[in-house]
Amino acid sequence: MSHVSMTVNGKQMSGDAEGRTLLSQFLRETLGLTGTHVGCDTSQCGACVVHVDGVAVKSCTMLAMEADGADISTIEGQAAEDGTLNALQQAFQDHHGLQCGFCTPGMIMSAADLLKNNPTPTEAEVRHHLEGNICRCTGYHNIVKAIMAASGQDVSSIAAE
């Protein structure tokens, strides 16, 4: 066991980890931040995406020890202190961009990563960016629409609501 420290959602946090402890496991089991989900074991579904030093990564495919000293953002840190959803979260609610909610934390974190680097993406860019985030409920329609809306683009002409 080694002691691992990191800044998570602006707060200093630490705990013990083995060499094999995954960042996702450390967040969920050691720090009790169960908003980050694990949906596969081959690094494909993206339910576990968090930001490490400002970059979206799959926390199930990174060792906790590799994140020692890093600045981590998770789904729990996205809303304001008073619980007000941020613009991206709010767009997901407004446009029904989630159903069962299991993939949602990873979707939000991946979408936030996209919008940080590409503030007004095209539909094709949004879809391409979500290559590593699998949703089984929504058929992606409302996820893509929500991200487009969160980027400030007009989505009123997109079919169906």
Binding site: C40, D41, T42, Q44, C45, E123, A124, V126, R127, H128, L130, E131, N133, I134, C135, R136, G139, Y140, H141, I143, V144, K145, I158, A159, A160
Partner: peptide, 20 residues
């Protein structure tokens, strides 16, 4: 037997749907 060979639909595999 895993997502390496079982192809799940991704966002880029589908269009917007027109529903009524």
């Amino acid at each position: 037997a895993s997502y390496m060979d079982y192809a799940m639909p991704r966002a880029s595999d589908v269009p917007y749907y027109n529903v009524d």
